[in-house]
């Protein structure tokens, strides 16, 4: 018996080794080394102090949070309206739209950045058209990034909302009307409370998705727009000015912001459940 237990454990060994070597140990090493200043060997909060006091670094954090927050709020609200509109169409049309959404949800990162550059870059197709009517558009700014980020957030939001909208039972409406509720009251008291938890859940997923996005931002701006993900990339893997420990501290802060977002979502969900119950 003891022998077979050992044999079973042996089968698990490759998984345990890979998991420890690629995920667990690197994460622990990252967390530890973020408390050591680069090129020294003494424990300190220097990296965190630097990040929160030097504008160059904390701007990356606020830029990332702003971009992620805005793109996820826009993505969630648009997703909500669009998904509602989609569920009102014929089934055949819905299925075709879902196919398009599936295809475009794969469209992210470098190829997406490229498509937007030829569309809206300095000599992009739409940029040229806008020039004829004397409107200047610069893709490599805040507005441009929001536009690109919403592009990859929106299909994800719709895919997450679609099953939720499909879960709305037609009989709820009938029951509400039979009990004398107006259309407005039905929406306020039944549909919106039903949708809210999924709305906040989707918002959190989109926020995390945007915070971690590296490829799109890097391919679009080459790191010239100061974001956490591109800053971490430059600090840990650049050719010049590599400061891996500072990069690790930044990555730890990135992980923390995502955990905090998840935590806030939990609190909101709990409060919502209490209000309904």
């Amino acid at each position: 018996m003891r022998y077979t237990r050992f044999k079973n454990f042996l089968v698990l060994l490759p998984f345990i080794i890979i998991f420890a070597a690629v995920l667990l140990i690197p994460f622990i090493m990252m967390a530890i080394s973020s408390f050591f200043q680069d090129n020294t060997s003494s424990f300190s909060f220097y990296n965190f102090h630097l990040i929160f006091t030097q504008k160059f670094y904390y701007i990356a954090i606020t830029n990332s949070i702003n971009l992620s927050l805005f793109s996820s709020i826009i993505g969630s609200f648009l997703g909500l309206f669009v998904t509602y509109a989609i569920t009102k169409l014929a089934h055949q049309t819905q299925n075709r739209l879902l196919l398009i959404l599936n295809a475009t949800s794969n469209f992210a990162g470098v190829p997406l950045a490229f498509a937007f550059i030829i569309l809206l870059g300095n000599s992009g197709f739409i940029t040229l058209m806008l020039k004829y009517v004397h409107i200047q558009f610069n893709l490599y700014t805040w507005m441009g990034l929001i536009l690109v980020y919403v592009y990859f957030q929106l299909p994800l939001a719709i895919m997450l909302f679609y099953p939720v909208f499909n879960g709305i039972d037609q009989r709820w409406k009938e029951a509400a009307y039979l009990l004398g509720a107006s259309n407005r009251r039905y929406w306020l008291k039944i549909v919106i409370p039903y949708l809210l938890p999924s709305f906040f859940g989707t918002l959190t997923i989109l926020f995390a998705n945007a915070m971690g996005a590296y490829a799109t931002a890097y391919a679009l701006t080459g790191g010239s727009f100061n974001l956490m993900s591109t800053r971490i990339g430059a600090l840990t893997s650049g050719d010049i000015n590599v400061m891996p420990n500072l990069g690790s501290a930044m990555a730890l802060i990135l992980a923390l912001t995502m955990i905090i977002a998840l935590f806030i979502n939990q609190i909101i969900l709990k409060k919502l459940r209490r209000d309904i119950g």
Partner: peptide, 13 residues
């Protein structure tokens, strides 16, 4: 887990 965190952990280690 975003790829950027995984990558910086791997490079660090």
């Amino acid at each position: 887990m975003p790829g950027i965190i995984l990558a910086s952990g791997l490079l660090q280690t």
